[in-house]
Simulated scan of single mutants.
Amino acid sequence: MIIILLILSVLAGVFLGKFFGEKQKFAKNLLILSAGFLITICLNDVFPEVYSGDNHNIGIFVIIGVLLQMLLENLTKGFEHGHFHHHHEEKNILPVALMIGMFIHAFLEGIPLANEKNIFSPYLMGILFHNLPISFVLGAFLVQKDKFTTSSWLVIAFFAVASPLGLLLGNYFNPDYKVYFLALVGGIFLHISSVIIFESNKNHNIDWMKILMVICGISLALVGHLFHSH
């Protein structure tokens, strides 16, 4: 069921991108909403679990996650933030480096889901919510004349199966290693959501809509947390 949800979240984002890809304001608000949701999941659920054990060096893995995401962004060029430079658009394909970076990113996210039975776990909800804006940008870029080509579907499938493959591989790891992968992905999430939320507004003016979207994302995550805790 979790694998199906992971794939569906990608497909949902892709089709949103197909139909609303030209609406940049919609894309921006979806991205900020997901960032508010993601950072709340990190601080309220992921990090408490990471730091609940006796490993006092676990923070190093969070830092590695932050640094890893910075390295991956040399491949993805900020795709996770909704940024994409369209100078490759005339080729009608995504750069190979970007696809590899996206795959690694999504693959790592799937590993901590190994042996997860609760489809309402905050971490899973964070990934599903996070998939929407990334897939939105993907769908908006790949659509041609209101439809997807065969090559477009191959790219979508490549990204959609990344997290499920991480989950399946994680089943073969020692369960004690889960916290290390969770710390790693927590660092990745922290970096992505922080960049989206705290990147400068134009002329450094207060963007009330951005603040509202962040608050909405935080509220949704808190509701999910309360639901899960009961």
Rank of each mutant, 00 (worst) to 15 (best):
G101T: 15
I156R: 00
E73A: 06
I111S: 09
S200Y: 15
Y123Q: 03
L128Q: 06
L98T: 13
S151P: 07
I7D: 01
A140E: 05
L8W: 00
V155K: 13
N171G: 15
G126M: 05
F181Y: 10
F15W: 07
V50W: 04
L165P: 01
H228D: 02
L142M: 05
F120P: 00
I3F: 00
I206A: 07
L33W: 09
G13F: 07
A35G: 10
N131V: 05
I4E: 04
G110A: 11
N203Q: 08
I32P: 10
A97N: 12
S163L: 02
W153I: 13
F227V: 14
E116G: 00
Y51T: 06
H87C: 07
Q24D: 10
S163V: 01
N55M: 06
V96Q: 08
G36Q: 10
V10E: 04
F159K: 00
N201T: 14
N201I: 01
H191D: 14
G166L: 09
H86V: 10
G53H: 08
Y51P: 04
N115T: 04
I215V: 15
S135N: 12
K210S: 14
I197C: 12
E90T: 06
H85L: 06
N55K: 08
L220F: 14
L43R: 11
K77L: 13
K28M: 05
K145W: 00
G101I: 09
H230N: 15
L184T: 07
L113F: 03
F79Y: 05
K145L: 00
N118R: 03
L94T: 07
L94E: 09
P48Y: 03
Y180L: 13
A12V: 15
K91W: 06
S163R: 02
C216H: 05
L43M: 10
L16G: 02
P133A: 12
E49W: 04
A183N: 15
I2Q: 00
A157N: 02
L8Y: 01
G186S: 10
F26H: 11
G59F: 15
I196D: 15
Q69M: 15
M1C: 04
V214N: 08
I192D: 13
F47V: 12
L11D: 07
A114M: 05
F79A: 09
V14Q: 02
N171H: 11
V66C: 13
A160T: 09
H88L: 12
N115C: 01
I58E: 11
F189L: 12
L67T: 14
L138C: 13
I3E: 00
E116T: 01
H83D: 11
D54G: 12
I188W: 08
E89T: 07
A97L: 14
N171Q: 14
S200L: 09
Q24M: 10
L128F: 04
V155T: 15
M1R: 07
L113D: 02
L72P: 03
A162M: 08
K210E: 11
L142I: 02
P95A: 13
A27G: 08
L190P: 03
C42W: 04
N55W: 11
K23D: 14
H83F: 09
I41H: 03
M1V: 01
G110K: 10
S229K: 11
G78N: 10
T150C: 03
